[in-house]
Nucleic acid binder design. Structure first.
Lengths: 193, 193
DNA sequence: ATGTATTTTCAGAAATTTCTGAAACCTGAG
DNA sequence: CTCAGGTTTCAGAAATTTCTGAAAATACAT
């Protein structure tokens, strides 16, 4: 591996991290390298710097492309493929989350939905369905939230995150302002977008 | 595998899902089974129902315990260990997130911090550090947010999630209410907890 | 077409991870 | 201490995943 020490440490760390997720070491390292590279790289650049076989790099890049995590571009007068990551880290995170949701959460939701449709044949199945229902409900809630915030511009999103739980405070103020002394006062903010 | 069809489908799905994460199939299946079981189970119950070897189940349970995802209890006059999941799904999710953060995010943050302390020896390293800084900043922001919301009671948390991006609307109202025509008007809600 | 530069595929080798049975290890009871 | 019921450990077998080199495909220029 032929990398300056700081880059090397970064690359190795993401290789390790990758393998804790479903991602394999190679793919993690390739992405880390791309992420810190000032310019787009060719597959052969990566071979030279990471020391994997050419075919391994090719497969890794294919994987990354299937995740929409790399940009592919061409330089005029050069037939080789040049790869890079988006400049904007937030874009990377958004893509990552989106793809993981697509691959992990959505299938789970559909399995749950399917199983919840079925008629339980025993007390055991009935209880199992109750549990699944709870899980389904929780996931739906999280997805709803995600679906909402992913549309925010990054600037707004950052604002929201920075605020953190202090939003609570503001909500309390709002509740106090708008509370109708007689009414339930609950789901106030619904339907106005 | 000796399970009613609905439970079996659920267990198998989580086995698959497990292997997409770092978690192995066995562990995923064990947890799924525990999750839908009306009563605590012994390791032998799991052997009987899932068909793994006793030692495999034992290792899986050890793994789950190291994640704090199972409760261990004893019945009077019975030496065997009985395992169960928390009753509250939210508690499970909280634990899951907490542990993953501990194992994946925190080490990454500390690697990043360490690498950012070092003096770059070249333009390449300088650029790499810039990228790492962006990543570090993003992760810190997310962690700060998480650190905030994880303290909320579940009811509050659900409220917040349900609201989703509509919070934005409320913030806009707040901004309008409190905006000082002359000032920057930015990070208003700071420091009041 | 032919030749060259490049990327992709794929069968099997290498490495890693998972799983098992047997043995070791606890812990409490007699 | 010894036994019985139970759990954990661990070395190696089995399965899976990753990685490679060689061959095939692609794409472009001449």
């Amino acid at each position: 591996m032929d990398l300056p020490p700081i880059v090397q440490a970064f690359v190795l760390h993401f290789g390790e991290m990758g393998s804790r997720w479903g991602i394999n070491r190679t793919v993690g390292q390739i992405y880390a390298l791309l992420y810190v590279s000032p310019d787009p790289l060719t597959a052969d650049d990566m071979v030279a710097r990471l020391g994997f076989s050419r075919s391994n790099v090719s497969m890794g890049l294919k994987e990354l492309q299937s995740w929409n995590l790399v940009r592919l571009q061409h330089l005029p007068g050069d037939r080789r493929d040049y790869f890079s990551t988006p400049d904007d880290v937030w874009q990377i995170v958004r893509t990552l989350v989106e793809e993981r949701k697509k691959r992990e959460v959505d299938p789970t939701l559909s399995v749950l939905r399917e199983l919840l449709m079925q008629t339980p044949a025993s007390a055991e199945e009935r209880h199992a369905q109750d549990r699944m229902r709870e899980m389904h409900h929780l996931i739906e809630l999280l997805c709803g939230w995600y679906d909402d915030v992913r549309r925010l511009e990054t600037e707004r999103l950052v604002q929201l995150l920075t605020l953190g739980a202090k939003v609570q405070k503001i909500l309390e103020v709002k509740d106090r302002l708008f509370a109708l002394p007689g009414g339930k006062g609950k789901d106030k903010a619904g339907k106005e977008g």
